[in-house]
Design a protein around this nucleic acid. Structure first.
Lengths: 357, 357
DNA sequence: GATGCTTTCTGTATCGTTCCAGTAAGGGGG
DNA sequence: CCCCCTTACTGGAACGATACAGAAAGCATC
């Protein structure tokens, strides 16, 4: 277990001072190529590896970004995470992935864990904005860029990327109406989650505009896990009067709903039509495949990554090695002004919706 | 953006020296409770947070463990990750989750990233053991505990946890034989992945013991993604002569296979029976639900976590604050002797297998 | 009252970087 | 020849914690 070489060892080996080696490491323009080559050669020969702790201690930058999502078992979030990770890595940042596991109580503890890891940026997808916001604000004031992934009030003090699926929701409702459905149920997760509220509002207003109204006994609250969706759907669909179509808050819940219908001897879409949200890949392989609301995941992830990086670089006028030219361009240091990106979702019609029997 | 307080600030505030404050932070037994209380109070009032970089620089410990899995879109790995994470956190370690995304070429780069983060331990699920082993050995020699998650040759120089599904495979084959199946196909992922080789050997020998033999045109090689499985299954099942049952290397591939069968107008299990591996939760909600080989995920994750922690603590006779009593107990510092945990899998019969038509 | 042993606490060196002020060498201009 | 500027490099002080040797006080022992 031999000791790792340090820049001092490298310096001795190549005959320069440790300051010079450090400058080479930072890719400083003050160092001529010939010197860099010699230093790199020495590093190579010694198997030198930069010590991240020392660097971070000195620079107060970890070059890591944390993301907290609601449920890693939902492929939707995995896809986002993977895209964000790729983009961040291109700019020299690592992504640390965490999840609250659909438990609102865990959100703050998980955020604390990431703060403990001293990330430079934080991407937060929360189920309970009101609860985490005060702490996030503190964190942001301490110099850590915070970005909200998900619905955001107009005036919030964070950069945010939002998927606006109101139009897609309306489109989905029109789609169901066109197929003859009038009796539509709604299966949703924890009521605190803001975007759900938005979706439910669209659900209500669209129904009302069509001369219908929400039937409360067809609105099921449940958790976000498959089991929760299954139980909720089963109890919804075994009612004496049951809806002919069901809106599920995400594709996982939609699949569970279909399974529940099948277990009750109902066919999908013959007896019940089901619409999901997220367009996870598995939904197109499910039998029947899911009609769902598709979000522009790549663009969403990109927005999150870019805002995070921009925020980190902005608050950081000091260290030149963290500078990312492509990001700097076109961005004035707006200071308190917050960025807001809104992306539109669309409807994908597949097998799980059909004409009312 | 005020500066974070340091132990020096805390020391000044409560009138002790920074050494004392540090000892309190390390929960040293040398400090009386009364003093600890005073110090904690000062910390509280200042909003002190321990600086991880400084600590890690000094102690050469990051209190972080890295895990690299093959595919985060496969819930099997997510479940493992979640369990491992919980256990590690109980002992004060963070888990950093990464994935090679089923690309063997990415395994080494991802490992390098984790090394760059200076994790104390590394849990590796590799698709190509031969390729990563030399590097892992180096890493281990530098003092980072490496644990292999997955198949492992008897003499390998790493701790390892393995799921032995040979018996379950045989059981599954017997199950298919009992249902009248003689023509069985095999859909597998990248051929380098060691456990697949094991499974295929069991497949072959079981067939041969039943007086049958492997038909090469029914053995499909494909990647691990849903799309790959779908394409492979479609081409397999559209052969003039097709198998009446198909073994898929994991549940994702099994679901894709079922979808492919359906798209070819074949019913499952009417025309084709399908067996998967992993027992992911979604498999029981799929229509038809999956017959699959179930691994003891919790025990597996626990084995991985415990071996990782034990290895970290073992190589680390110095710092008392990393000591974990429950782990130390019953473990002698065996030095070079490597731990090996083997867990047995079992068959879960559900709807996707049935009598041969 | 000198000695030794705890218990409780402290001063200082150290971890491996980066930052900053500054130096030495070389060249050009007056 | 002196001055100034640029280029290439360097020494030493941080960063915020832990490690270690040792000090001071209290008490028991002989």
């Amino acid at each position: 277990m031999s000791k790792q070489p340090t820049i001092l060892d490298v310096a001795k080996k190549c005959g320069f001072s440790k300051s010079t080696v450090s400058l080479v490491l930072q890719n400083s323009t003050e160092i001529p190529e010939s010197t860099k080559a010699e230093v790199f050669k020495a590093m190579e020969e010694l198997g030198y590896r930069r010590n991240r702790f020392a660097r971070s201690l000195r620079t107060r930058r970890s070059h890591a970004v944390g993301i907290i999502v609601q449920d890693l078992l939902n492929p939707f979030y995995i896809e986002i995470v993977q895209h964000v990770e790729q983009l961040l890595r291109k700019h020299g940042y690592d992504l640390i992935v965490t999840s609250s596991n659909t438990d609102p109580e865990l959100e703050l503890p998980v955020i604390e864990r990431l703060v403990g890891l001293q990330v430079d940026g934080l991407i937060v997808s929360t189920m309970d904005y009101e609860r985490v916001a005060p702490r996030l604000k503190e964190i942001q004031e301490q110099g850590t860029q915070c970005v909200i992934a998900g619905p955001a009030y107009p005036g919030i003090p964070f950069d945010a990327a939002t998927i606006d699926d109101a139009d897609a929701m309306r489109e989905a409702m029109e789609h169901l109406f066109a197929l003859g459905h009038r009796d539509i149920g709604f299966i949703w997760g924890a009521p605190t989650f803001q975007s759900i509220g938005v979706r439910f509002e669209v659900f209500r207003t669209t129904l009302e505009r069509a001369g219908l109204s929400v039937r409360n006994e067809w609105v099921m609250h449940c958790g976000f896990r498959l089991r929760d969706g299954y139980d909720a759907a089963k109890s919804l669909l075994s009612r004496a009067e049951r809806p002919s179509a069901v809106f599920a808050l995400n594709d996982m819940l939609a699949m569970a709903t279909i399974r529940a219908a099948r277990d009750l001897g109902l066919s999908v879409p013959g007896d019940v039509s089901v619409v999901g949200v997220d367009n996870v890949e598995l939904g197109s392989f499910f039998c029947p495949s899911l009609t769902t609301i598709a979000s522009p995941i790549t663009a969403y992830a990109e927005a999150l990554a870019v805002m995070t990086l921009a925020g980190i670089e902005r608050t950081d006028a000091v260290t030149p090695d963290t500078l990312c030219e492509p990001l700097r361009k076109g961005r004035k240091p707006t200071g308190a002004r917050r960025e807001r990106v809104v992306l539109r979702a669309g409807l994908v019609v597949r097998e799980s919706t059909g004409e009312k029997a």
